[in-house]
Design a protein around this nucleic acid. Structure first.
Lengths: 171, 171
DNA sequence: GATGGTATGTAATACTATAACATCCCTTGT
DNA sequence: ACAAGGGATGTTATAGTATTACATACCATC
Protein backbone atom coordinates (compact mmCIF):
# COMPACT_ATOMS: atom_id res chain seq x y z
CA UNK A 1 0.00 0.00 0.00
CA UNK A 2 1.54 3.23 -1.16
CA UNK A 3 1.01 6.26 1.08
CA UNK A 4 -0.88 9.16 -0.35
CA UNK A 5 0.92 12.42 -0.70
CA UNK A 6 -0.01 15.81 -2.03
CA UNK A 7 -0.35 16.15 -5.75
CA UNK A 8 2.84 18.19 -5.85
CA UNK A 9 4.75 15.53 -3.95
CA UNK A 10 3.47 12.77 -6.19
CA UNK A 11 4.63 14.73 -9.21
CA UNK A 12 8.08 15.16 -7.70
CA UNK A 13 8.21 11.48 -6.83
CA UNK A 14 7.43 10.50 -10.37
CA UNK A 15 10.10 12.83 -11.57
CA UNK A 16 12.60 11.40 -9.08
CA UNK A 17 11.72 7.90 -10.14
CA UNK A 18 12.41 8.74 -13.75
CA UNK A 19 15.71 10.35 -12.81
CA UNK A 20 16.78 7.30 -10.84
CA UNK A 21 15.74 5.06 -13.69
CA UNK A 22 17.97 6.93 -16.11
CA UNK A 23 20.86 6.52 -13.72
CA UNK A 24 20.36 2.84 -13.12
CA UNK A 25 19.38 3.52 -9.54
CA UNK A 26 16.33 1.91 -8.06
CA UNK A 27 13.78 4.08 -6.30
CA UNK A 28 12.05 1.23 -4.50
CA UNK A 29 8.72 1.51 -2.74
CA UNK A 30 10.47 2.02 0.58
CA UNK A 31 12.69 4.76 -0.79
CA UNK A 32 9.81 6.38 -2.56
CA UNK A 33 7.77 6.31 0.60
CA UNK A 34 10.51 7.95 2.68
CA UNK A 35 11.22 10.55 0.03
CA UNK A 36 7.53 11.29 -0.14
CA UNK A 37 7.30 11.85 3.60
CA UNK A 38 10.24 14.24 3.43
CA UNK A 39 8.93 16.16 0.43
CA UNK A 40 5.48 16.40 1.94
CA UNK A 41 6.62 17.87 5.24
CA UNK A 42 6.52 21.59 5.95
CA UNK A 43 9.79 21.43 7.90
CA UNK A 44 12.84 19.21 8.03
CA UNK A 45 12.07 15.76 9.31
CA UNK A 46 14.17 13.73 11.74
CA UNK A 47 15.17 10.13 11.12
CA UNK A 48 13.15 8.82 14.03
CA UNK A 49 10.08 10.79 12.99
CA UNK A 50 10.33 9.05 9.65
CA UNK A 51 10.81 5.74 11.41
CA UNK A 52 7.72 6.17 13.55
CA UNK A 53 5.60 6.95 10.57
CA UNK A 54 7.12 4.18 8.52
CA UNK A 55 6.18 1.70 11.22
CA UNK A 56 2.52 2.45 10.77
CA UNK A 57 2.58 0.48 7.56
CA UNK A 58 5.85 -1.43 7.72
CA UNK A 59 6.14 -3.80 10.61
CA UNK A 60 9.86 -4.52 10.61
CA UNK A 61 11.11 -0.96 10.20
CA UNK A 62 14.15 -0.19 12.37
CA UNK A 63 16.80 2.53 12.47
CA UNK A 64 18.93 0.96 9.72
CA UNK A 65 15.89 0.86 7.47
CA UNK A 66 15.65 4.61 7.67
CA UNK A 67 19.32 5.47 7.67
CA UNK A 68 20.06 3.29 4.67
CA UNK A 69 17.23 4.86 2.80
CA UNK A 70 18.40 8.35 3.70
CA UNK A 71 21.89 7.46 2.55
CA UNK A 72 20.55 6.44 -0.83
CA UNK A 73 18.49 9.59 -1.20
CA UNK A 74 21.45 11.75 -0.20
CA UNK A 75 23.69 10.02 -2.74
CA UNK A 76 21.11 10.65 -5.44
CA UNK A 77 20.92 14.30 -4.49
CA UNK A 78 17.19 13.96 -3.79
CA UNK A 79 17.43 15.22 -0.22
CA UNK A 80 19.75 17.27 1.97
CA UNK A 81 20.72 16.86 5.57
CA UNK A 82 20.36 19.97 7.74
CA UNK A 83 23.20 19.60 10.23
CA UNK A 84 21.89 22.03 12.77
CA UNK A 85 18.64 20.15 13.07
CA UNK A 86 19.86 16.60 12.46
CA UNK A 87 17.02 16.47 10.01
CA UNK A 88 16.33 16.07 6.34
CA UNK A 89 14.68 18.14 3.64
CA UNK A 90 13.88 17.44 0.04
CA UNK A 91 15.97 18.94 -2.71
CA UNK A 92 13.71 20.30 -5.40
CA UNK A 93 16.62 20.80 -7.76
CA UNK A 94 17.59 17.18 -7.22
CA UNK A 95 14.06 15.94 -7.76
CA UNK A 96 13.66 17.86 -11.00
CA UNK A 97 17.13 17.50 -12.40
CA UNK A 98 18.01 16.57 -15.94
CA UNK A 99 17.51 12.80 -16.08
CA UNK A 100 20.66 12.42 -18.14
CA UNK A 101 22.75 14.29 -15.61
CA UNK A 102 24.98 12.69 -13.02
CA UNK A 103 23.73 12.11 -9.54
CA UNK A 104 25.40 14.72 -7.43
CA UNK A 105 24.95 16.79 -4.33
CA UNK A 106 24.01 20.37 -4.96
CA UNK A 107 25.78 23.32 -3.40
CA UNK A 108 22.97 24.64 -1.30
CA UNK A 109 22.43 27.10 1.50
CA UNK A 110 19.70 26.83 4.07
CA UNK A 111 17.79 29.55 5.82
CA UNK A 112 16.19 28.25 9.00
CA UNK A 113 13.49 30.38 10.58
CA UNK A 114 13.74 30.45 14.36
CA UNK A 115 10.09 31.24 14.72
CA UNK A 116 8.27 28.90 12.39
CA UNK A 117 10.99 26.28 11.93
CA UNK A 118 10.63 26.27 8.20
CA UNK A 119 13.67 25.94 6.03
CA UNK A 120 14.26 27.65 2.72
CA UNK A 121 16.85 26.31 0.35
CA UNK A 122 18.92 28.72 -1.71
CA UNK A 123 21.33 27.79 -4.43
CA UNK A 124 23.18 31.06 -4.67
CA UNK A 125 26.24 30.80 -6.81
CA UNK A 126 27.88 33.92 -5.40
CA UNK A 127 27.84 32.49 -1.91
CA UNK A 128 29.49 29.28 -3.04
CA UNK A 129 32.09 31.00 -5.15
CA UNK A 130 33.07 33.58 -2.55
CA UNK A 131 33.52 30.81 -0.02
CA UNK A 132 35.53 28.72 -2.47
CA UNK A 133 37.68 31.72 -3.20
CA UNK A 134 38.34 32.51 0.45
CA UNK A 135 39.18 28.89 1.13
CA UNK A 136 41.54 28.78 -1.81
CA UNK A 137 43.33 31.83 -0.46
CA UNK A 138 43.88 29.78 2.68
CA UNK A 139 45.31 26.95 0.57
CA UNK A 140 42.21 24.82 0.88
CA UNK A 141 40.27 23.05 -1.87
CA UNK A 142 36.61 22.57 -1.00
CA UNK A 143 34.73 19.40 -1.87
CA UNK A 144 31.45 20.12 -0.15
CA UNK A 145 30.19 22.92 2.04
CA UNK A 146 27.51 23.17 4.68
CA UNK A 147 25.96 26.61 4.86
CA UNK A 148 23.09 27.03 7.27
CA UNK A 149 21.80 30.34 8.55
CA UNK A 150 19.39 30.82 11.38
CA UNK A 151 17.15 33.85 11.63
CA UNK A 152 13.76 35.25 10.81
CA UNK A 153 11.83 34.61 7.61
CA UNK A 154 9.79 37.28 5.88
CA UNK A 155 6.48 35.77 6.95
CA UNK A 156 7.37 35.66 10.63
CA UNK A 157 8.80 39.13 10.42
CA UNK A 158 5.50 40.55 9.25
CA UNK A 159 3.48 38.46 11.72
CA UNK A 160 5.22 39.05 15.05
CA UNK A 161 2.75 36.86 16.92
CA UNK A 162 4.49 33.68 15.99
CA UNK A 163 2.26 30.84 15.10
CA UNK A 164 4.24 27.73 15.16
CA UNK A 165 3.19 25.07 12.71
CA UNK A 166 6.20 22.81 12.51
CA UNK A 167 7.99 24.92 15.03
CA UNK A 168 11.23 23.37 16.20
CA UNK A 169 12.90 26.30 17.80
CA UNK A 170 10.63 28.76 19.54
CA UNK A 171 12.65 30.91 21.89
CA UNK B 1 46.12 20.07 40.28
CA UNK B 2 46.02 22.05 37.07
CA UNK B 3 46.81 20.18 33.88
CA UNK B 4 49.86 21.23 31.96
CA UNK B 5 49.35 22.57 28.51
CA UNK B 6 51.61 23.94 25.83
CA UNK B 7 53.09 27.35 26.44
CA UNK B 8 50.88 28.78 23.72
CA UNK B 9 47.77 27.30 25.32
CA UNK B 10 48.71 28.60 28.74
CA UNK B 11 49.12 32.06 27.27
CA UNK B 12 45.68 31.88 25.66
CA UNK B 13 44.18 30.61 28.89
CA UNK B 14 45.58 33.54 30.80
CA UNK B 15 44.21 35.87 28.19
CA UNK B 16 40.82 34.18 28.34
CA UNK B 17 40.81 34.42 32.11
CA UNK B 18 41.48 38.13 31.95
CA UNK B 19 38.72 38.58 29.37
CA UNK B 20 36.24 36.71 31.53
CA UNK B 21 37.27 38.73 34.55
CA UNK B 22 36.52 41.98 32.74
CA UNK B 23 33.11 40.66 31.85
CA UNK B 24 32.23 39.47 35.32
CA UNK B 25 32.33 35.88 34.14
CA UNK B 26 34.15 33.26 36.13
CA UNK B 27 36.65 31.04 34.34
CA UNK B 28 36.83 28.41 37.06
CA UNK B 29 39.44 25.70 37.22
CA UNK B 30 37.07 23.23 35.55
CA UNK B 31 36.30 25.62 32.72
CA UNK B 32 39.93 26.53 32.33
CA UNK B 33 40.85 22.87 32.20
CA UNK B 34 38.30 22.07 29.50
CA UNK B 35 39.22 25.13 27.47
CA UNK B 36 42.86 24.12 27.76
CA UNK B 37 42.17 20.64 26.42
CA UNK B 38 40.31 22.09 23.48
CA UNK B 39 42.94 24.71 22.68
CA UNK B 40 45.72 22.17 23.00
CA UNK B 41 44.20 19.68 20.58
CA UNK B 42 45.25 19.47 16.95
CA UNK B 43 41.70 18.71 15.83
CA UNK B 44 38.20 19.34 17.10
CA UNK B 45 37.43 17.43 20.26
CA UNK B 46 34.21 15.63 21.09
CA UNK B 47 32.36 16.08 24.36
CA UNK B 48 32.94 12.50 25.44
CA UNK B 49 36.63 12.69 24.60
CA UNK B 50 36.81 15.65 26.92
CA UNK B 51 34.84 13.74 29.52
CA UNK B 52 37.16 10.74 29.42
CA UNK B 53 40.19 12.91 29.89
CA UNK B 54 38.53 14.97 32.56
CA UNK B 55 37.83 11.81 34.53
CA UNK B 56 41.50 11.08 34.85
CA UNK B 57 41.73 13.84 37.41
CA UNK B 58 38.14 14.53 38.36
CA UNK B 59 36.32 11.63 39.88
CA UNK B 60 32.72 12.82 39.61
CA UNK B 61 32.80 14.07 36.04
CA UNK B 62 29.69 13.19 34.05
CA UNK B 63 28.14 14.35 30.79
CA UNK B 64 26.47 17.41 32.32
CA UNK B 65 29.83 18.48 33.72
CA UNK B 66 31.19 18.71 30.20
CA UNK B 67 28.13 20.06 28.45
CA UNK B 68 27.62 22.82 31.00
CA UNK B 69 31.21 23.82 30.67
CA UNK B 70 31.00 23.84 26.88
CA UNK B 71 27.87 25.96 27.10
CA UNK B 72 29.72 28.53 29.15
CA UNK B 73 32.69 28.58 26.79
CA UNK B 74 30.40 28.94 23.78
CA UNK B 75 28.55 31.83 25.41
CA UNK B 76 31.83 33.57 26.09
CA UNK B 77 32.90 33.09 22.48
CA UNK B 78 35.96 31.15 23.59
CA UNK B 79 35.13 28.07 21.55
CA UNK B 80 33.05 27.07 18.54
CA UNK B 81 31.03 23.99 17.84
CA UNK B 82 31.70 22.26 14.52
CA UNK B 83 28.34 20.86 13.56
CA UNK B 84 29.55 18.35 11.03
CA UNK B 85 31.78 16.72 13.60
CA UNK B 86 29.72 17.26 16.77
CA UNK B 87 32.98 18.55 18.17
CA UNK B 88 34.52 21.70 19.55
CA UNK B 89 37.44 23.92 18.63
CA UNK B 90 39.00 26.91 20.31
CA UNK B 91 38.33 30.38 18.97
CA UNK B 92 41.56 32.31 18.86
CA UNK B 93 39.74 35.54 18.18
CA UNK B 94 37.58 34.91 21.23
CA UNK B 95 40.54 34.05 23.43
CA UNK B 96 42.42 37.18 22.44
CA UNK B 97 39.54 39.62 22.20
CA UNK B 98 39.45 43.09 23.64
CA UNK B 99 38.75 42.57 27.34
CA UNK B 100 36.34 45.49 27.36
CA UNK B 101 34.32 44.07 24.48
CA UNK B 102 31.08 42.21 24.84
CA UNK B 103 31.07 38.45 24.93
CA UNK B 104 29.77 37.39 21.58
CA UNK B 105 29.93 34.62 19.03
CA UNK B 106 32.09 35.35 16.04
CA UNK B 107 30.98 34.87 12.46
CA UNK B 108 33.37 32.15 11.48
CA UNK B 109 33.86 29.68 8.67
CA UNK B 110 35.54 26.33 9.08
CA UNK B 111 37.65 24.40 6.65
CA UNK B 112 37.80 20.72 7.59
CA UNK B 113 40.50 18.62 5.98
CA UNK B 114 39.26 15.19 5.00
CA UNK B 115 42.70 13.72 5.17
CA UNK B 116 44.23 14.97 8.39
CA UNK B 117 41.04 15.99 10.18
CA UNK B 118 42.41 19.36 11.12
CA UNK B 119 40.18 22.37 11.07
CA UNK B 120 41.11 25.90 10.07
CA UNK B 121 38.97 28.79 11.17
CA UNK B 122 38.46 31.70 8.83
CA UNK B 123 36.72 34.94 9.65
CA UNK B 124 36.18 36.18 6.14
CA UNK B 125 33.91 39.16 6.03
CA UNK B 126 33.08 38.80 2.35
CA UNK B 127 31.70 35.33 2.90
CA UNK B 128 29.45 36.53 5.70
CA UNK B 129 28.25 39.57 3.85
CA UNK B 130 27.53 37.82 0.58
CA UNK B 131 25.50 35.25 2.49
CA UNK B 132 23.67 37.94 4.43
CA UNK B 133 22.90 39.72 1.19
CA UNK B 134 21.60 36.60 -0.55
CA UNK B 135 19.44 35.80 2.47
CA UNK B 136 18.07 39.31 2.56
CA UNK B 137 17.10 39.04 -1.09
CA UNK B 138 15.07 36.02 -0.03
CA UNK B 139 13.42 38.10 2.71
CA UNK B 140 15.40 36.50 5.47
CA UNK B 141 17.31 38.21 8.28
CA UNK B 142 20.22 36.13 9.54
CA UNK B 143 21.09 35.90 13.23
CA UNK B 144 23.84 33.32 13.07
CA UNK B 145 25.30 31.21 10.31
CA UNK B 146 27.09 27.90 10.24
CA UNK B 147 29.59 27.64 7.40
CA UNK B 148 31.64 24.49 7.25
CA UNK B 149 33.55 23.27 4.23
CA UNK B 150 35.12 19.88 3.77
CA UNK B 151 38.06 19.31 1.49
CA UNK B 152 41.80 19.13 1.30
CA UNK B 153 44.22 21.38 3.16
CA UNK B 154 47.43 22.65 1.61
CA UNK B 155 49.63 20.36 3.67
CA UNK B 156 47.76 17.22 2.71
CA UNK B 157 47.66 18.33 -0.89
CA UNK B 158 51.43 18.48 -1.05
CA UNK B 159 51.89 15.24 0.89
CA UNK B 160 49.57 12.78 -0.84
CA UNK B 161 50.59 9.95 1.46
CA UNK B 162 48.17 10.92 4.15
CA UNK B 163 49.46 10.70 7.64
CA UNK B 164 46.59 10.85 10.01
CA UNK B 165 47.39 12.51 13.27
CA UNK B 166 43.99 13.36 14.71
CA UNK B 167 42.33 11.95 11.65
CA UNK B 168 38.59 11.70 11.97
CA UNK B 169 37.62 11.17 8.40
CA UNK B 170 39.96 9.08 6.36
CA UNK B 171 38.18 7.81 3.28
C1' DG C 1 19.25 -24.49 -9.90
C1' DA C 2 23.65 -22.23 -8.73
C1' DT C 3 25.70 -17.73 -8.51
C1' DG C 4 26.00 -13.01 -7.42
C1' DG C 5 24.20 -8.62 -6.45
C1' DT C 6 21.02 -5.39 -4.45
C1' DA C 7 17.76 -4.51 -0.94
C1' DT C 8 15.81 -5.30 3.37
C1' DG C 9 15.14 -7.51 8.15
C1' DT C 10 16.76 -7.94 12.88
C1' DA C 11 19.29 -7.38 17.22
C1' DA C 12 22.42 -5.13 19.65
C1' DT C 13 25.13 -1.28 20.73
C1' DA C 14 27.64 3.19 20.31
C1' DC C 15 27.60 7.98 20.41
C1' DT C 16 25.65 12.62 21.54
C1' DA C 17 22.88 15.46 24.61
C1' DT C 18 19.54 16.90 28.20
C1' DA C 19 16.36 16.74 32.40
C1' DA C 20 15.75 16.92 37.09
C1' DC C 21 17.11 17.31 41.47
C1' DA C 22 20.84 17.52 45.23
C1' DT C 23 24.82 19.62 47.22
C1' DC C 24 28.49 22.77 47.95
C1' DC C 25 30.47 27.10 48.53
C1' DC C 26 30.86 31.87 48.53
C1' DT C 27 29.00 36.57 49.12
C1' DT C 28 26.45 39.83 51.34
C1' DG C 29 23.24 41.95 54.47
C1' DT C 30 21.85 41.91 59.26
C1' DA D 1 27.65 34.43 63.64
C1' DC D 2 24.18 33.24 60.48
C1' DA D 3 20.41 33.28 57.13
C1' DA D 4 19.39 34.03 52.36
C1' DG D 5 20.47 33.85 47.67
C1' DG D 6 23.05 32.71 43.70
C1' DG D 7 26.41 30.48 41.00
C1' DA D 8 28.85 26.22 40.20
C1' DT D 9 29.15 21.48 40.39
C1' DG D 10 27.66 16.58 41.63
C1' DT D 11 24.62 12.70 40.63
C1' DT D 12 21.25 9.73 38.49
C1' DA D 13 18.53 8.79 34.89
C1' DT D 14 16.94 9.14 30.35
C1' DA D 15 16.24 11.03 25.60
C1' DG D 16 17.73 11.41 20.95
C1' DT D 17 20.75 10.23 16.96
C1' DA D 18 23.42 6.82 14.38
C1' DT D 19 26.11 2.58 13.30
C1' DT D 20 27.78 -2.38 13.35
C1' DA D 21 27.19 -6.94 12.23
C1' DC D 22 24.97 -10.56 10.61
C1' DA D 23 20.76 -12.90 8.50
C1' DT D 24 17.38 -13.22 4.92
C1' DA D 25 14.82 -12.28 0.70
C1' DC D 26 14.44 -11.28 -3.95
C1' DC D 27 15.76 -11.00 -8.56
C1' DA D 28 18.57 -11.48 -12.79
C1' DT D 29 20.99 -14.37 -15.64
C1' DC D 30 23.81 -17.95 -16.92
Amino acid sequence: MTAEFSRRTEALLNRAEAICGHRGANLTELRRHVLGMILDAASPTGAYDLLDRLRQTRRGAAPPTVYRTLEFLLEQGLIHRVERLSAFVGCIAGCTADPDGESHTHAAQFLICRTCGRVVEMQDHDVSSVLARAAKDAGFIISTATIEAEGLCSTCRSVPSARGRGNRMAS
